[in-house]
């Protein structure tokens, strides 16, 4: 439906198209369902679970000792803002799996976080360089309100999939909804297909 007297403010300096319904944001908004949890890197641990048992774990120091990967990318939040040209550093899921000597299982993964947040992702969307654990944003330690010390980053999906304060990946044969997916958000969340809510 056209709003006849609406013209919008398209950015003349936009370097490339952004997904439908999004606007370009220069700031870095914070959207979380709860307060920012206090996370202590001295006791922090990241684990991978398969079939109910923990098959690999890394301390903060162990994570930092792994090969580090830089990524330059755009991010898209379901609340309509997109932030272009962001720089992150961390460890790819490929690197973690290789370090643990695990072949990527088929199926799905559920990310678990401090504070209890969860989100589901197909395994195919976090391997082959598509997903990583990041601890650095724009050259600085990732701020707590943005998910520090460590968040997931899966930039080709809406940002609620890039779980903040991530602590665990649980591999599953069947897909299951995470936190927002259980409240009607899309199971997959592709911003280019505008998969915001369950029936999009």
């Amino acid at each position: 439906m056209i709003n006849n007297r609406f013209f919008g403010k398209r950015r003349p300096d936009a370097p490339r198209p952004i997904p439908p319904g999004q606007y370009q944001e220069d700031g870095f908004p914070v959207l979380s369902a709860g307060p920012t949890p206090k996370v202590d890197t001295a006791t922090w641990e990241f684990t991978i679970d398969i079939k109910g048992s923990t098959v690999a774990s890394w301390s903060w120091d162990a994570l930092n000792a792994l090969p580090q990967t830089d990524i330059h990318t755009d991010i898209h939040c379901v609340t309509k803002w997109s932030k272009l040209d962001t720089d992150w550093c961390g460890v790819t899921i490929d690197t973690l799996l290789k370090d643990a000597g695990i072949d990527p299982p088929a199926g799905f993964a559920m990310a678990g976080c401090d504070g209890g947040y969860t989100t589901n992702i197909p395994v195919a969307d976090i391997v082959d360089g598509k997903g990583m654990l990041v601890h650095t944003f724009d050259g600085q330690p990732l701020a707590p309100e943005h998910g520090g010390p460590v968040r997931l980053l899966i930039p080709h999906l809406y940002l609620w999939k890039s779980a903040k304060w991530v602590r665990n990946l649980r591999f599953m044969d069947q897909d299951a909804p995470g936190f927002w997916e259980g409240y009607g958000y899309h199971m997959y969340g592709d911003p280019w297909r505008e998969q915001r809510y369950s029936n999009d």
Binding site: F28, V30, L31, S32, G34, P35, T36, W81
Partner: peptide
């Protein structure tokens, strides 16, 4: 706004409220 919610959330955790009893909605960059 983000700064407001961050600060209040920290205070509520400080007085001993459970993390999951604090529900937040933030807006603005």
């Amino acid at each position: 706004g983000t700064g407001f919610v961050e600060s209040i959330g920290n205070h509520l955790l400080e007085i001993g409220m459970a993390y999951t009893d604090i529900l937040t909605e933030r807006f603005g960059p």
